[in-house]
């Protein structure tokens, strides 16, 4: 059809650190086919699964307000790992979009 594709809406998801692991697997990052990290697995029993709002396929735009745009895979993974590790906050805020 000729209908315009609606712009994907970003959703803020708060994951409370209520398990020993975050429990997500991500792929992608700058200079890959998937330029922003995408969630490929959510493990049962992890904080992300317990939160109930993160989904496989979600693309992560920001972590605690830190943009992941332009960051290579390892850097994006490090930011997420540090957000989970820090004792400053009992949660992580993910800004995610459904893939378009």
């Amino acid at each position: 059809t000729g209908s315009p594709v609606p712009a994907p809406t970003a959703t803020l998801v708060r994951v409370v650190k209520n398990a020993n692991t975050l429990g997500i697997a991500i792929e992608g990052g700058a200079n890959t086919r998937q330029p922003l990290p995408r969630i490929v697995t959510i493990q049962k029993g992890g904080s992300a699964h317990n939160c109930g709002q993160l989904k496989v396929g979600h693309i992560i735009l920001e972590v605690n307000g830190i943009s992941l745009r332009g960051r290579e895979h390892k850097d994006a993974a490090r930011i997420i790992a540090e957000a989970f590790k820090t004792k400053e906050k009992d949660h992580i805020d993910f800004l995610v979009v459904e893939p378009g």
Binding site: T21, L22, G23, I24, A25, I26, E27, G28, G29, N31, T32, R33, Q34, V40, T41, Q43, H73, K74, A77, I80, A81, F84
Partner: peptide, 15 residues
Amino acid sequence: REKRLTLPPSEITLL
């Protein structure tokens, strides 16, 4: 003709 993807696939990290 299909455009070729030249960017590499990403590794996967479990967090």
